[in-house]
Design a binder for these strands. Structure first.
Length: 274
DNA sequence: ACCCAGGAATCCA
DNA sequence: TGGATTCATGGG
């Protein structure tokens, strides 16, 4: 069991800010799945508890070595009211260190899709193509490997409500099997990493930025989706229409902390409009 | 019936 | 290079 005392870790904030899809309410908190592992996490009065069979993995997963007070202070002193408000609301947000391949396939599913539907697709896919596991008496399934996704074929995804993303799933699975090495890209600078991710069929700028931020922990990434675009117009008075240029605007403004700011404001904007 | 969602590929000028 | 169109699906 890991115990972590900090106001900069809140299970709800971390899980519901949009960076992860495989979690569900459980007892006092949440049951979280990552790769072929699971944990139980809850926060009570500024104290977060993590139970798992692999503490080293989840110690890294929840980014426990990073001091988020520095990041929070940066947001609070940014000079942008919306960023200050967002950081206050999502004080317990952290950027998880998730598996690269899982991020690739998860965010392919995410494009032009609603979050509840994304969760459903990923859950069904894991049940059908992953391995059955259990933790604390709960059944869960590992995230399927590229090989399983490739073997399932485009037909499986088309028949299981993945829509036009079905072809992207098998195309990317094929690339990975044919030697597209996600781990090897770790040595590249962020711009070059993104450039390489963009060569995958079905991976555009937004999905590449999500993989870069959540899978490689490149906080000099700034995914722009419809929510961020709306926020950019309404709260930053922005006029640019090209999402690539909107990304550049935020990168120029927030630099190495762009990814953290992005999660704060994405979570904030969505929580307002529910 | 319409609109929208953590967009990207494709076509077209 | 930049803009419009097309691509499935289901919840509101």
């Amino acid at each position: 069991m890991i115990e972590y005392e900090s106001k900069f870790f809140n299970a709800k904030d971390v899980l519901e800010c949009g960076q992860i899809f495989r979690f569900r309410p459980f007892e006092k908190g949440y049951f979280v799945c990552a790769e072929d592992k699971a944990c139980y996490v809850y926060t009570e009065e500024g104290r977060t508890v993590i139970e798992s069979d692999d503490e080293e993995y989840f110690n890294n997963f929840f980014d426990l070595l990073t001091d988020y007070s520095v990041i929070y202070d940066f947001a609070e002193k940014s000079g942008y009211p919306v960023v200050v408000k967002a950081a206050k609301l999502g004080k317990g947000v952290r950027i998880l260190r998730q598996n690269k391949e899982e991020m690739l396939f998860s965010f392919i599913v995410s494009q032009n899709n609603h979050i509840p539907r994304i969760k459903g697709c990923i859950e069904r896919m894991s049940r059908d193509l992953g391995e059955k596991k259990s933790f604390k008496g709960e059944t869960f399934y590992s995230f399927p490997k590229a090989e399983s996704i490739y073997k399932a074929g485009e037909k499986y995804f088309a028949e299981n409500a993945f829509g036009y993303r079905a072809g992207y799933m098998s195309a990317c699975a094929e690339s990975v099997l044919n030697g597209f090495d996600l781990e090897k890209l770790s040595s590249l600078p962020t711009k070059e990493l993104k450039k390489q991710l963009l060569t995958l069929h079905g991976v555009g700028p937004k999905v590449a930025d999500c993989i870069s931020l959540f899978g490689y922990h490149r906080t000099d990434s700034f995914p722009v989706d419809t929510w961020i675009e709306k926020l950019y117009r309404e709260d930053f008075g922005g006029t640019l229409k090209d999402r690539n240029k909107i990304t550049d605007f935020f990168l120029d403004t927030f630099g190495e902390n762009s990814g953290y700011v992005q999660q704060y404001i994405f979570y904030y904007k969505r929580s307002l409009e529910q």
